[in-house]
Amino acid sequence: MELSRRDVLAALSAAGVGAAAGCSVLPRRDSRPVGEHEVATLVAVAEVVYPSDVETVEGFVRDYSVERVRGDDDYAEGVSVAVADLDDYATDWYDGEYVDLTRTQREDLLDVMGVDTADPDPNGLAMERVRYYLVNELLFAFYTTPTGAGLAGLENPPGHPGGTQSYQRGPRR
């Protein structure tokens, strides 16, 4: 299952960023409101939390995440702090940054932090910030796309045109 340019635009539109204002082009990669390390960490988190059969995760996450934080300095700062929190845990447990860990170590680290059961809170503890800024944001982006929604059995997510036939037929099996 491949994430496309259309998926990036759908996710941005659902988040109320760029595409919602009628933007028809993808974000430029020449201007980054967050650094390369933050983007690489978001990609590494997505590789753990997205279904394993999803392809083009890196391009999707890079395009979505960079545009998502553009123009929102507070949100960009929150992403940076959450990445630093994640790296602190990675250093304590594995003597390296999150992006340098194996997929299994990355998954284990999120479990050790308790991210899966943490309440998302932008001003909370480390695991709550990681849940809010990294995990929940990535899952929101994925499942608001036609590709992600289709994987979850939602063939016609809000804002995705499909006509009357899309809601009258049953899910594909």
Rank of each mutant, 00 (worst) to 15 (best):
M1Y: 08
L3E: 09
L3D: 03
L3P: 02
L3W: 06
S4N: 10
R6D: 13
D7E: 04
L9V: 05
A10M: 10
A11L: 04
L12Q: 15
A15Q: 07
A15S: 08
V17W: 02
A20C: 12
S24R: 14
S24F: 10
S24K: 15
P27L: 10
R28S: 15
R28A: 15
R28K: 12
R32G: 02
G35F: 08
V39I: 15
V39C: 14
A40W: 03
V43L: 03
V45T: 01
V45N: 01
V48A: 04
V48M: 06
V48G: 06
V49G: 09
P51I: 00
T56S: 12
E58Y: 03
G59W: 07
F60C: 02
V61D: 08
R62G: 05
Y64A: 00
S65H: 02
E77F: 14
E77L: 14
V79S: 05
V79Y: 14
V81N: 10
V83E: 02
V83S: 09
A84Y: 05
T91C: 11
T91G: 11
W93P: 01
Y94N: 10
D95R: 09
D95C: 00
D100I: 01
D100V: 07
L101I: 05
R103D: 11
R106T: 01
L110T: 00
M113R: 03
D116C: 02
D116M: 06
D119F: 14
P120E: 08
P120Q: 08
D121L: 04
G124M: 00
L125W: 06
M127C: 12
R129Y: 06
R129N: 06
V130L: 03
V135G: 05
V135N: 02
V135S: 01
A141W: 08
G148V: 07
A149P: 04
A149G: 11
G150T: 11
N156E: 13
G159Y: 06
H160E: 08
P161A: 12
T164S: 11
Q165G: 13
Y167F: 11
Y167I: 15
Q168W: 11
P171Q: 04
P171L: 07
R172D: 05
